[in-house]
Design a protein around this nucleic acid. Sequence first.
DNA 1: GCGGCAGTTGATCGGTTGATCAATTCGGCT
DNA 2: AGCCGAATTGATCAACCGATCAACTGCCGC
Lengths: 192, 192
Amino acid sequence: MPSTPAPAQSRLPGEARRAAILEAATALARADGLAALTLRRVGERAGVASGLVAHYVDGMDALVAEVFTGISAGERAEVAAIDRLAPLVRTLTDGSRDAVTLVWVQAWAAAPGNAALAAAVRAEMDAWQALLEECLVAAGAADPAPIARTLLGMIDGVNAHALAGWRERREHADLLLRSLAAMLGVEVDALS
Amino acid sequence: MPSTPAPAQSRLPGEARRAAILEAATALARADGLAALTLRRVGERAGVASGLVAHYVDGMDALVAEVFTGISAGERAEVAAIDRLAPLVRTLTDGSRDAVTLVWVQAWAAAPGNAALAAAVRAEMDAWQALLEECLVAAGAADPAPIARTLLGMIDGVNAHALAGWRERREHADLLLRSLAAMLGVEVDALS
DNA sequence: GCGGCAGTTGATCGGTTGATCAATTCGGCT
DNA sequence: AGCCGAATTGATCAACCGATCAACTGCCGC
């Protein structure tokens, strides 16, 4: 399958075309970030005229918000099966998801000027919090909500810094786990 | 003093005009973020034609990098006098610096497309790390570098999340301090 | 009082963006 | 076969961007 110019299947039913455009936009955002989402570039990637992209989308702000939600939800689905905290934290900070981290950072930066994106960011943060809370409760946390929020902030912050230049992943993961154990009031070994 | 349209002092010597433009750009970035920095808007804020801004600046990328460095360095100067870890962490997470957090997040997001800004971000991160290391050594840390880096990531991440909607500041600060004590291998009370 | 030059202006250029819409094309149904 | 409507095109618009530069202005030294 040709990757960049796209196959350009001719004459899709509206719903399928809309899905194809969304998929192209998502692939583009994964590769080059949310800032790369323009009508023309998405159209090119989808093998379609820019006007058609505009026709199937309720404004670029809505498209950006939708793509963001899709990428974040996809990442959640990937790690949902991990129910132990230690491997979960290690997976989320091992650098294998830098592309997604860039999307998150760009979403925070763009949220003040894009209400739909801001709402999507808050919704995804809540979903991630819920995911972490499940693991925390299983690990014996009595009041998991604040710990989940703080841990999520820690993970995102460390990842953002890694994106900007600091790459000492392993030490970050170890220190994060030590911190998590302290927040839970348990020994570090209990997490692995 | 009129704030928005600016006084427009006439005929400054070159160096002073350049400083005035930089000050106007910094004020604008503090209020509306780095994304608000355009030749025309900075010129308007400084009470000066857009062409003059371009004349005193080596491209917008360089201006953005310079403004970022100034804002971050200013924040460091504000907290440099705090030498105890607990009040330092509390000050950095109490929400009084949300404007600066937005600047940081926008800098991370824009760094991939602005080499000068990327270098400035790395330099400021190093400076912040050095500042934290001093406090950590004073608190008895044997190997402060990784702890400083991780702590800085935690602080920035929690602040970025707060920027996006979560506002439970106090619980974050308390949990951060508990984490910090664990990373240092000391009791929480030893930090305050 | 006046010449010269540093400081300053603002129109202008080429480019990109989101959005719009008349015109065109094609697939399926009769 | 022929046609109707949905799908699609691509030119076009207004807005904004960074950058450039010829022209203007006013201060300083003579």
